[in-house]
Every structure is written in C-alpha cells, then in structure tokens.
Amino acid sequence: MEIKTKVAAGQVSQADGKAKMAARGVDMYYGEKKALKSIDLDIREREVTALIGPSGCGKSTFLRCLNRMNDVIEGAKVQGDIRLDGQNIYDQAIDVVQLRARVGMVFQKPNPFPKSIYENVAYGPKIHGLARTREELDRIVETSLTKAGLWEEVKARLQETGTGLSGGQQQRLCIARAIAVSPEVILMDEPCSALDPIATAKIEELIDELRSNYTIVIVTHSMQQAARVSQRTAFFHLGELVEVGDTAQIFTNPKDDRTQGYITGRFG
C-alpha cells in the first residue's frame, strides 16, 4: 500500500490552472531547417490541451519535444527552455528515461508490442521496477486496463497477443500501457487518426475521464475533436504558436486572423 501513501503525497499540487509544463522560447531545428520558432506555452495541470493546426505546422514536433522523443532523430536540435514542475527537461541533470516515465506518450498509429495483452501493459511497470510482486503487477495491469476502459473486453484473454485486437482496442491498450507507468503527463499524437468514428468516440470519452488524474496534451487534426475533449487549445502555423487560449474562446472568438481562417476552413 505504499503506492497509496505516495499518492497522498503527490496530491499536494492540485491548484487549478497551475502550469504542469511550461515552454519558453523553444526553437527546434532539423539540421538546417527551423521547425519551431520561439514557442511559449503553458500546459496546465489536469486539463486537456489540444494542439491544432495544418499539416507540417510543427504541432507534433512540439509534442515530441515535451518528452524528448526528438533526441533520437539525427540532426534534431532543441533550444530554449521546457520545464516540468519547474525543472528544465533539457537540463544535463534530467534523465531522459525518467522524464519519459513521467511524461508518457501515445502514438498516431496504435503500436502494441507483439506480445500478450498482459505483457504489453506490464512492460512499463516491469522496466521501471514499479511492482515488487506478481500480485502488484496484476493489480497495476487491471487498474490500467480498467482506466483505459478495456478491462471488461479483454479480461478473459489477457494472454492473447495484443496485435490481434481491433484498431480502437489496440489504441486503448496503448493508452493503458502508458497509464501503467503512472505518468504525470500523457502526450497523444493524433491518437484517433487511424480509427473509425465509433472507436474515436470511445477514445475521446476516455480522454475526458483521464483528465481527472492526468495532464494531457493531444495533437489533433480534427477541430471538432479539439472542441470536444480539450479545455485549452493552441493553434500552430508554420512552426509558430499563433494563439493559445480556452477552447471555447479559440473556437468562438479567435483573436488572430490565421486562427479564424483555419477554424472556418479557409485553409488546412
């Protein structure tokens, strides 16, 4: 029950609107090409922040900066300052493995490992050493799958391979896999773009539920989705952050002409 006590300790910082992550003056280069230009953005705790914008605007790139997934790409270089709970994540002292445990990620295409459903969810806790006994691990798997709304569907076939599930189930499995590590922030890179409308609706519902426990950043192509699931929306265009604000405000009363043009469908 150590987990529970830790949870209690972790709940101190629950002030609404507090910035969980903060980006200041972030520039990002792929080789010579500048992909992000001086981004300033706060990600508020226990809210869903949607990043929207036309293709190639840098929204996914920015998302991948938040847990340093760009590190592996050759020639990628990040300048500026991204803070998680006040600590610069590009600091030498920050360990990228630990960072990614705290800032989890769900990808565009469902990418379950070619292992059993159980092993998929248990993978993260195992590598991070979060469970000391088999029972603890079982519980984490069950809780994570339950939170991802998948438990009832798969509890009878936990040992079957994860790649055998339907696309929507696979994506929920990937979400469960991310939750199992107990991250503080979950990044979602167009999580529904490969799914049909019904599966999409389920995932959106799930994102809404997860908001009570996690800080979520979601990149989406669909403005309706951003409107449905997010509290705050940031509009990116050509590597710049054009506008950020409450979702309702962005969609009803955008301040910038480019935002206006995009949400009314003049380009995109």
Binding site: V7, S182, N213
Partner: peptide
C-alpha cells in the same frame, strides 16, 4: 485508488 499522479513515484 489513484496510483498515477504521484510525482515522486519516478
């Protein structure tokens, strides 16, 4: 039971 948002877990 919320096992997740414990910021010191990691």
């Amino acid at each position: 039971m919320t096992i997740s948002t414990a910021s010191d877990l990691h």
